[in-house]
Design a protein around this nucleic acid. Structure first.
Lengths: 153, 153
DNA sequence: GTCAAATTGTTTGACGTCTAACAATATAAC
DNA sequence: GTTATATTGTTAGACGTCAAACAATTTGAC
Protein backbone atom coordinates (compact mmCIF):
# COMPACT_ATOMS: atom_id res chain seq x y z
CA UNK A 1 0.00 0.00 0.00
CA UNK A 2 1.45 3.31 -1.05
CA UNK A 3 -0.83 5.89 0.51
CA UNK A 4 -3.77 5.92 2.88
CA UNK A 5 -6.82 7.85 1.60
CA UNK A 6 -7.21 9.43 4.97
CA UNK A 7 -3.67 10.72 5.10
CA UNK A 8 -3.63 14.24 6.45
CA UNK A 9 -0.41 15.33 4.80
CA UNK A 10 -0.33 17.48 1.70
CA UNK A 11 0.37 14.76 -0.82
CA UNK A 12 -2.94 14.13 -2.52
CA UNK A 13 -4.09 10.88 -4.04
CA UNK A 14 -4.73 11.08 -7.78
CA UNK A 15 -6.46 7.71 -8.01
CA UNK A 16 -6.30 6.08 -11.44
CA UNK A 17 -5.42 9.32 -13.21
CA UNK A 18 -1.63 8.89 -13.36
CA UNK A 19 -2.05 5.52 -15.07
CA UNK A 20 -4.04 7.04 -17.94
CA UNK A 21 -2.06 8.06 -21.02
CA UNK A 22 -4.78 10.62 -21.75
CA UNK A 23 -4.20 12.24 -18.37
CA UNK A 24 -0.43 12.38 -18.76
CA UNK A 25 -0.90 13.93 -22.15
CA UNK A 26 -3.24 16.50 -20.68
CA UNK A 27 -0.71 17.39 -17.99
CA UNK A 28 2.01 17.84 -20.58
CA UNK A 29 -0.32 19.98 -22.66
CA UNK A 30 -1.15 22.24 -19.72
CA UNK A 31 2.54 22.74 -18.94
CA UNK A 32 3.30 23.45 -22.59
CA UNK A 33 0.52 25.99 -22.83
CA UNK A 34 1.86 27.76 -19.76
CA UNK A 35 5.37 28.01 -21.13
CA UNK A 36 4.09 29.04 -24.55
CA UNK A 37 1.96 31.80 -23.01
CA UNK A 38 4.90 33.01 -20.93
CA UNK A 39 7.17 33.02 -23.97
CA UNK A 40 4.75 34.73 -26.35
CA UNK A 41 2.44 36.51 -23.93
CA UNK A 42 3.90 39.80 -25.01
CA UNK A 43 2.47 39.18 -28.51
CA UNK A 44 -0.94 37.92 -27.41
CA UNK A 45 -0.63 34.74 -29.42
CA UNK A 46 -1.79 31.30 -28.31
CA UNK A 47 -0.61 27.99 -29.81
CA UNK A 48 -3.79 27.81 -31.85
CA UNK A 49 -3.41 31.35 -33.14
CA UNK A 50 0.22 30.68 -34.03
CA UNK A 51 -0.91 27.67 -36.04
CA UNK A 52 -3.46 29.76 -37.89
CA UNK A 53 -0.86 32.34 -38.86
CA UNK A 54 1.59 29.69 -40.04
CA UNK A 55 -1.09 28.00 -42.14
CA UNK A 56 -2.17 31.24 -43.80
CA UNK A 57 1.45 32.09 -44.51
CA UNK A 58 2.07 28.69 -46.08
CA UNK A 59 -1.18 28.74 -48.06
CA UNK A 60 -1.89 32.31 -49.10
CA UNK A 61 -5.37 32.81 -50.47
CA UNK A 62 -6.94 29.85 -48.71
CA UNK A 63 -10.58 30.15 -47.70
CA UNK A 64 -11.91 30.37 -44.16
CA UNK A 65 -13.51 26.95 -44.38
CA UNK A 66 -10.26 25.39 -45.49
CA UNK A 67 -8.49 27.08 -42.62
CA UNK A 68 -11.11 25.77 -40.22
CA UNK A 69 -10.53 22.20 -41.34
CA UNK A 70 -6.76 22.56 -41.29
CA UNK A 71 -6.63 24.15 -37.84
CA UNK A 72 -9.31 21.90 -36.30
CA UNK A 73 -11.57 24.85 -35.60
CA UNK A 74 -15.23 25.42 -36.26
CA UNK A 75 -16.08 27.75 -39.18
CA UNK A 76 -17.70 30.15 -36.73
CA UNK A 77 -14.58 30.22 -34.61
CA UNK A 78 -12.51 31.13 -37.64
CA UNK A 79 -14.71 34.17 -38.13
CA UNK A 80 -13.72 35.65 -34.78
CA UNK A 81 -10.11 34.53 -35.09
CA UNK A 82 -9.78 36.32 -38.43
CA UNK A 83 -11.72 39.32 -37.09
CA UNK A 84 -9.07 39.49 -34.40
CA UNK A 85 -6.11 39.17 -36.76
CA UNK A 86 -7.64 41.59 -39.26
CA UNK A 87 -8.29 44.16 -36.52
CA UNK A 88 -4.60 43.89 -35.63
CA UNK A 89 -3.65 44.40 -39.26
CA UNK A 90 -1.99 41.00 -39.59
CA UNK A 91 -4.37 39.32 -42.03
CA UNK A 92 -6.51 40.52 -44.90
CA UNK A 93 -9.78 39.14 -46.25
CA UNK A 94 -9.80 39.41 -50.04
CA UNK A 95 -12.63 38.49 -52.39
CA UNK A 96 -11.93 35.04 -53.78
CA UNK A 97 -11.89 34.33 -57.49
CA UNK A 98 -14.71 32.17 -58.80
CA UNK A 99 -16.67 32.23 -55.56
CA UNK A 100 -18.40 35.27 -54.23
CA UNK A 101 -19.16 33.54 -50.92
CA UNK A 102 -15.57 32.98 -49.93
CA UNK A 103 -12.78 35.11 -48.60
CA UNK A 104 -9.19 34.57 -49.65
CA UNK A 105 -6.94 34.99 -46.62
CA UNK A 106 -3.49 36.52 -46.87
CA UNK A 107 -0.94 37.74 -44.36
CA UNK A 108 -0.17 41.46 -44.51
CA UNK A 109 3.47 42.61 -44.43
CA UNK A 110 2.96 43.25 -40.70
CA UNK A 111 1.67 39.71 -40.38
CA UNK A 112 4.72 38.30 -42.12
CA UNK A 113 7.01 40.39 -39.93
CA UNK A 114 5.27 39.25 -36.76
CA UNK A 115 5.41 35.63 -37.85
CA UNK A 116 9.17 35.91 -38.14
CA UNK A 117 9.46 37.05 -34.53
CA UNK A 118 6.97 34.42 -33.38
CA UNK A 119 8.94 31.66 -35.03
CA UNK A 120 12.06 32.61 -33.10
CA UNK A 121 10.15 32.58 -29.80
CA UNK A 122 8.41 29.32 -30.61
CA UNK A 123 11.77 27.81 -31.47
CA UNK A 124 13.08 28.69 -28.02
CA UNK A 125 9.91 27.37 -26.44
CA UNK A 126 10.21 24.13 -28.35
CA UNK A 127 13.80 23.82 -27.15
CA UNK A 128 12.71 24.07 -23.50
CA UNK A 129 9.93 21.60 -24.23
CA UNK A 130 12.34 18.86 -25.22
CA UNK A 131 15.08 19.96 -22.85
CA UNK A 132 15.05 16.71 -20.89
CA UNK A 133 14.75 14.50 -23.98
CA UNK A 134 17.53 13.22 -26.19
CA UNK A 135 17.09 13.77 -29.90
CA UNK A 136 16.16 10.13 -30.25
CA UNK A 137 13.56 10.39 -27.49
CA UNK A 138 12.11 13.47 -29.11
CA UNK A 139 11.71 11.63 -32.40
CA UNK A 140 10.17 8.65 -30.62
CA UNK A 141 7.71 10.90 -28.84
CA UNK A 142 6.52 12.42 -32.10
CA UNK A 143 6.17 9.00 -33.71
CA UNK A 144 4.13 7.67 -30.80
CA UNK A 145 1.91 10.75 -30.70
CA UNK A 146 1.10 10.26 -34.37
CA UNK A 147 -0.17 6.77 -33.59
CA UNK A 148 -2.97 8.17 -31.42
CA UNK A 149 -6.25 8.24 -33.34
CA UNK A 150 -4.40 8.57 -36.68
CA UNK A 151 -7.73 8.05 -38.47
CA UNK A 152 -8.87 11.45 -37.31
CA UNK A 153 -6.34 13.54 -39.20
CA UNK B 1 11.06 20.04 -52.63
CA UNK B 2 7.92 18.37 -51.44
CA UNK B 3 5.19 20.88 -52.19
CA UNK B 4 4.81 24.21 -53.90
CA UNK B 5 3.18 26.92 -51.82
CA UNK B 6 1.08 27.92 -54.75
CA UNK B 7 -0.31 24.45 -55.33
CA UNK B 8 -4.00 24.65 -56.05
CA UNK B 9 -4.88 21.14 -54.92
CA UNK B 10 -6.48 20.35 -51.60
CA UNK B 11 -3.35 19.24 -49.76
CA UNK B 12 -2.46 22.20 -47.59
CA UNK B 13 0.99 23.14 -46.42
CA UNK B 14 1.40 23.13 -42.65
CA UNK B 15 4.77 24.86 -42.67
CA UNK B 16 6.93 24.18 -39.64
CA UNK B 17 4.01 22.93 -37.55
CA UNK B 18 4.46 19.19 -38.09
CA UNK B 19 8.07 19.41 -36.92
CA UNK B 20 7.04 20.83 -33.55
CA UNK B 21 6.54 18.36 -30.71
CA UNK B 22 4.14 20.85 -29.14
CA UNK B 23 1.99 20.80 -32.27
CA UNK B 24 1.89 17.02 -32.49
CA UNK B 25 0.94 16.90 -28.84
CA UNK B 26 -1.82 19.39 -29.48
CA UNK B 27 -3.18 17.32 -32.37
CA UNK B 28 -3.21 14.21 -30.22
CA UNK B 29 -4.95 16.12 -27.46
CA UNK B 30 -7.67 17.36 -29.82
CA UNK B 31 -8.31 13.84 -31.10
CA UNK B 32 -8.40 12.47 -27.55
CA UNK B 33 -10.85 15.13 -26.45
CA UNK B 34 -13.14 14.27 -29.36
CA UNK B 35 -13.17 10.56 -28.54
CA UNK B 36 -13.61 11.26 -24.84
CA UNK B 37 -16.57 13.52 -25.54
CA UNK B 38 -18.14 10.93 -27.83
CA UNK B 39 -17.63 8.20 -25.25
CA UNK B 40 -18.92 10.15 -22.25
CA UNK B 41 -21.09 12.78 -23.91
CA UNK B 42 -24.16 11.12 -22.54
CA UNK B 43 -22.96 11.96 -19.02
CA UNK B 44 -21.87 15.54 -19.74
CA UNK B 45 -18.40 14.98 -18.36
CA UNK B 46 -15.19 16.38 -19.83
CA UNK B 47 -11.69 15.04 -19.13
CA UNK B 48 -11.17 17.85 -16.64
CA UNK B 49 -14.43 17.18 -14.86
CA UNK B 50 -13.63 13.49 -14.70
CA UNK B 51 -10.32 14.34 -13.08
CA UNK B 52 -12.05 16.51 -10.50
CA UNK B 53 -14.46 13.72 -9.56
CA UNK B 54 -11.65 11.18 -9.26
CA UNK B 55 -9.61 13.52 -7.06
CA UNK B 56 -12.53 14.24 -4.73
CA UNK B 57 -13.26 10.54 -4.49
CA UNK B 58 -9.63 9.76 -3.63
CA UNK B 59 -9.32 12.65 -1.15
CA UNK B 60 -12.64 13.10 0.58
CA UNK B 61 -12.89 16.31 2.56
CA UNK B 62 -10.28 18.20 0.59
CA UNK B 63 -10.71 21.95 0.25
CA UNK B 64 -11.54 23.83 -2.93
CA UNK B 65 -8.12 25.44 -3.07
CA UNK B 66 -6.42 22.09 -2.76
CA UNK B 67 -8.59 20.77 -5.55
CA UNK B 68 -7.70 23.77 -7.68
CA UNK B 69 -3.99 23.11 -7.29
CA UNK B 70 -4.38 19.39 -7.89
CA UNK B 71 -6.53 19.77 -11.00
CA UNK B 72 -4.58 22.72 -12.41
CA UNK B 73 -7.60 24.99 -12.24
CA UNK B 74 -8.03 28.50 -10.96
CA UNK B 75 -9.80 28.84 -7.60
CA UNK B 76 -12.58 30.76 -9.29
CA UNK B 77 -13.04 28.00 -11.84
CA UNK B 78 -13.41 25.46 -9.06
CA UNK B 79 -16.31 27.48 -7.71
CA UNK B 80 -18.36 27.01 -10.87
CA UNK B 81 -17.23 23.42 -11.33
CA UNK B 82 -18.41 22.52 -7.84
CA UNK B 83 -21.58 24.58 -8.32
CA UNK B 84 -22.24 22.40 -11.35
CA UNK B 85 -21.53 19.09 -9.57
CA UNK B 86 -23.47 20.13 -6.48
CA UNK B 87 -26.48 21.13 -8.61
CA UNK B 88 -26.37 17.67 -10.12
CA UNK B 89 -26.26 16.12 -6.67
CA UNK B 90 -22.85 14.52 -7.19
CA UNK B 91 -20.77 16.52 -4.72
CA UNK B 92 -21.43 18.12 -1.36
CA UNK B 93 -19.83 21.16 0.26
CA UNK B 94 -19.43 20.58 3.99
CA UNK B 95 -18.09 23.01 6.55
CA UNK B 96 -14.45 22.18 7.20
CA UNK B 97 -13.11 21.55 10.69
CA UNK B 98 -10.69 24.14 12.03
CA UNK B 99 -11.30 26.64 9.21
CA UNK B 100 -14.53 28.51 8.76
CA UNK B 101 -13.41 29.83 5.37
CA UNK B 102 -13.08 26.45 3.72
CA UNK B 103 -15.43 23.85 2.34
CA UNK B 104 -14.74 20.16 2.69
CA UNK B 105 -15.70 18.42 -0.55
CA UNK B 106 -17.18 14.93 -0.64
CA UNK B 107 -18.84 12.79 -3.27
CA UNK B 108 -22.48 11.92 -2.62
CA UNK B 109 -23.64 8.31 -3.10
CA UNK B 110 -24.90 9.41 -6.54
CA UNK B 111 -21.46 10.81 -7.26
CA UNK B 112 -19.79 7.56 -6.28
CA UNK B 113 -22.23 5.60 -8.44
CA UNK B 114 -21.64 7.85 -11.43
CA UNK B 115 -17.88 7.62 -11.01
CA UNK B 116 -18.12 3.86 -11.29
CA UNK B 117 -19.86 4.14 -14.66
CA UNK B 118 -17.46 6.83 -15.82
CA UNK B 119 -14.46 4.69 -15.00
CA UNK B 120 -15.74 1.92 -17.24
CA UNK B 121 -16.26 4.32 -20.14
CA UNK B 122 -12.90 5.99 -19.60
CA UNK B 123 -11.28 2.56 -19.56
CA UNK B 124 -12.75 1.82 -22.99
CA UNK B 125 -11.68 5.23 -24.24
CA UNK B 126 -8.16 4.69 -22.98
CA UNK B 127 -8.09 1.37 -24.78
CA UNK B 128 -8.92 3.03 -28.10
CA UNK B 129 -6.36 5.70 -27.35
CA UNK B 130 -3.49 3.23 -27.24
CA UNK B 131 -4.99 0.90 -29.82
CA UNK B 132 -2.11 1.34 -32.26
CA UNK B 133 0.58 1.18 -29.58
CA UNK B 134 2.19 -1.91 -28.09
CA UNK B 135 2.27 -2.09 -24.31
CA UNK B 136 5.93 -1.15 -24.44
CA UNK B 137 5.23 1.85 -26.65
CA UNK B 138 2.46 2.95 -24.32
CA UNK B 139 4.83 2.83 -21.36
CA UNK B 140 7.49 4.72 -23.31
CA UNK B 141 4.97 7.40 -24.29
CA UNK B 142 4.01 7.98 -20.66
CA UNK B 143 7.66 8.15 -19.61
CA UNK B 144 8.51 10.67 -22.32
CA UNK B 145 5.46 12.80 -21.54
CA UNK B 146 6.56 13.01 -17.92
CA UNK B 147 9.88 14.45 -19.04
CA UNK B 148 8.16 17.54 -20.46
CA UNK B 149 8.41 20.45 -18.02
CA UNK B 150 8.64 18.09 -15.02
CA UNK B 151 9.47 21.06 -12.82
CA UNK B 152 5.91 22.28 -13.20
CA UNK B 153 4.16 19.40 -11.44
C1' DG C 1 -2.49 40.12 22.63
C1' DT C 2 -2.42 43.26 18.41
C1' DC C 3 -2.01 44.07 13.90
C1' DA C 4 -0.14 43.18 9.24
C1' DA C 5 0.05 39.62 5.81
C1' DA C 6 -1.64 35.50 3.66
C1' DT C 7 -5.39 32.32 2.42
C1' DT C 8 -10.20 30.98 1.12
C1' DG C 9 -14.30 31.24 -1.48
C1' DT C 10 -16.83 34.29 -4.31
C1' DT C 11 -18.33 37.65 -7.96
C1' DT C 12 -17.59 40.07 -12.15
C1' DG C 13 -15.90 40.63 -16.66
C1' DA C 14 -13.14 38.96 -20.38
C1' DC C 15 -11.79 35.48 -23.84
C1' DG C 16 -11.84 31.34 -26.93
C1' DT C 17 -14.40 27.73 -28.25
C1' DC C 18 -18.65 25.18 -29.74
C1' DT C 19 -23.52 24.38 -31.75
C1' DA C 20 -27.61 25.89 -34.08
C1' DA C 21 -29.65 28.80 -37.13
C1' DC C 22 -29.61 31.98 -41.21
C1' DA C 23 -28.94 34.35 -45.92
C1' DA C 24 -26.14 34.37 -49.98
C1' DT C 25 -24.08 31.77 -53.36
C1' DA C 26 -22.56 27.63 -55.86
C1' DT C 27 -23.31 22.87 -57.46
C1' DA C 28 -25.90 18.94 -58.93
C1' DA C 29 -30.20 16.56 -60.63
C1' DC C 30 -33.47 16.51 -63.69
C1' DG D 1 -32.92 26.01 -67.65
C1' DT D 2 -35.12 25.20 -63.20
C1' DT D 3 -34.98 23.54 -58.88
C1' DA D 4 -33.24 21.03 -54.92
C1' DT D 5 -29.04 20.37 -52.29
C1' DA D 6 -24.61 21.72 -50.44
C1' DT D 7 -21.24 25.08 -49.02
C1' DT D 8 -19.64 29.60 -47.13
C1' DG D 9 -19.47 33.15 -43.90
C1' DT D 10 -21.97 35.06 -40.23
C1' DT D 11 -24.64 35.89 -35.88
C1' DA D 12 -26.52 34.58 -31.40
C1' DG D 13 -26.32 31.94 -27.33
C1' DA D 14 -24.02 28.67 -24.37
C1' DC D 15 -20.08 26.84 -21.80
C1' DG D 16 -15.47 26.48 -19.53
C1' DT D 17 -11.68 28.84 -18.42
C1' DC D 18 -8.84 32.76 -16.46
C1' DA D 19 -7.54 37.19 -13.95
C1' DA D 20 -8.69 40.89 -10.83
C1' DA D 21 -11.01 42.49 -6.98
C1' DC D 22 -13.43 41.69 -2.54
C1' DA D 23 -14.92 40.26 2.34
C1' DA D 24 -14.26 36.82 5.83
C1' DT D 25 -11.03 34.35 8.25
C1' DT D 26 -6.56 32.52 9.60
C1' DT D 27 -1.61 32.89 10.35
C1' DG D 28 2.55 35.12 11.59
C1' DA D 29 5.51 39.10 13.56
C1' DC D 30 6.28 41.67 17.17
Amino acid sequence: MTRKKTSADKGLDFGILPSLAGYQLRLAQIAIFRDFAAALGEFDVTPGLFGVIVIIDANPGLKQSELARAAHLDRSTVVSVIDNLERRGLVERRPADNDRRSNALVLTPDGVALLKKLKRRVGEHEKRLVEHLSEEERATLVTLLQKIFPEQR
